[in-house]
C-alpha cells in the first residue's frame, strides 16, 4: 500500500490497519438498546443489545420480516436508528454526517441475496470498482483483484462478462467485491437465498475462509439447514427482540429450530 493515495478518514476501521491496543480491545460492533420504527406503534427492532467481537462469525437469523435486513441496514447506515446507539469500532455511526457515510462503508463489505453485480461489466470491472473508489493505482487494483478472484475460486476469469456466469459464480463475484478492499466487517444479507443447497454450503464455506483470516462476518439467513450444519454464534431476531446462542443450535435456549426460523 506504500505510495498509494487511499482516502480513509477512519484508518483504524480497516482490517489489517495498525490500530492501537485500546482500539483493538474494543468490540467491533456494539448495539445499545436499539429501536427502529416503521410504524409508530410497532417497532421492527425493540431494545436490541448486541456485542460482536473482532474476528467473530455470527449467523443472524429469524423468520422473514423479523428485522434481519433492517438490522444490517442500520449497520451500513442505509437506515438510521430511532433510539439507542450503534457503535462501530467505538464510534456512534448514528452521529456520522452524510458526507462521512461513504468512509464508514469503505470499512464494510456488503453482500446481498440478489448479488447486485452489474451484468454488462466484466468480472474484473465488478470487483475493481470497490478499489477505484479508494483511488488506488491500476497496477495495485489488478493485483488485488486477481488475489480476490483466487480466494473466491474464480482465478483467471476476470475478463468474462458477468452476464454469462451462473448464480453461484455471480455470488462469488459479489463476495470478491466485498473482500477486495480488506474490510473490517462483512455483512452478508441472505447471500445464499438465491442458490441451491449445494452452492449455499460452498458460499458459506467461502465466508468461513474469509473469517479465518481475521475478518468479522455477520451472515443473515433464514435457511435452518445452513445454521444446523455449523456451530457459529447464533443471533435470532423475532418480533424485534434478540435471542442469542453462543455455539449454534447446541446452545439454543428455545424448544427447537422452529422457534428460530418460524
Amino acid at each position: 500500500m506504500q505510495g498509494t493515495k487511499v482516502v480513509r478518514p477512519f484508518p483504524f476501521f480497516r482490517a489489517g490497519a495498525r490500530a492501537s491496543q485500546p482500539q483493538l480491545a474494543k468490540p467491533i460492533l456494539v448495539l445499545e438498546d436499539v429501536y427502529k420504527f416503521f410504524r409508530p406503534d410497532e417497532p421492527t427492532l425493540r431494545g436490541v443489545n448486541l456485542k460482536v467481537e473482532r474476528g467473530e462469525f455470527a449467523f443472524i437469523t429469524g423468520p422473514s420480516g423479523a428485522g434481519k435486513s433492517t438490522l444490517l441496514k442500520l449497520l451500513y447506515r442505509e437506515l438510521m436508528v430511532d433510539e439507542g446507539r450503534v457503535l462501530f469500532c467505538g464510534r456512534d455511526i448514528g452521529r456520522l454526517t452524510d458526507k462521512s457515510i461513504p468512509f464508514l462503508r469503505r470499512n464494510l463489505g456488503i453482500v446481498f441475496q440478489d448479488f447486485r453485480i452489474i451484468d454488462h461489466w466484466t468480472v474484473f470491472e465488478n470487483i475493481a470498482v470497490a478499489l477505484e473508489i479508494l483511488s488506488m493505482p491500476q497496477r495495485l487494483i489488478r493485483s488485488r483483484v486477481a488475489e480476490a478472484l483466487e480466494r473466491v475460486g474464480l482465478n483467471g476469469r476476470g475478463d468474462e462478462q458477468t452476464s454469462n456466469l451462473s448464480g453461484g459464480e455471480k455470488q462469488r463475484v459479489a463476495v470478491a467485491r466485498a473482500i477486495v478492499p480488506e474490510p473490517a466487517l462483512i455483512l452478508a444479507d441472505e447471500p445464499t437465498g438465491n442458490l441451491d443447497p449445494h452452492l449455499a454450503i460452498d458460499i458459506l464455506t467461502l465466508f468461513e475462509e474469509i473469517n479465518s483470516t481475521g475478518t468479522t462476518v455477520l451472515f443473515a439467513t433464514h435457511d435452518h439447514s445452513l445454521i444446523s450444519k455449523r456451530d457459529h454464534r447464533l443471533i435470532s431476531i423475532d418480533e424485534g427482540r434478540v435471542v442469542e446462542a453462543r455455539q449454534g443450535l447446541k446452545d439454543w435456549p428455545g424448544s427447537g429450530i422452529h422457534t428460530l426460523v418460524g
Binding site: R105, I110, R116
Partner: peptide, 12 residues
C-alpha cells in the same frame, strides 16, 4: 444499479 453498488462500496 451501478450507482447503488458504488454507494454501497463507499463511493462519495
Amino acid at each position: 444499479q451501478e450507482i447503488q453498488v458504488m454507494k454501497l462500496c463507499g463511493a462519495t
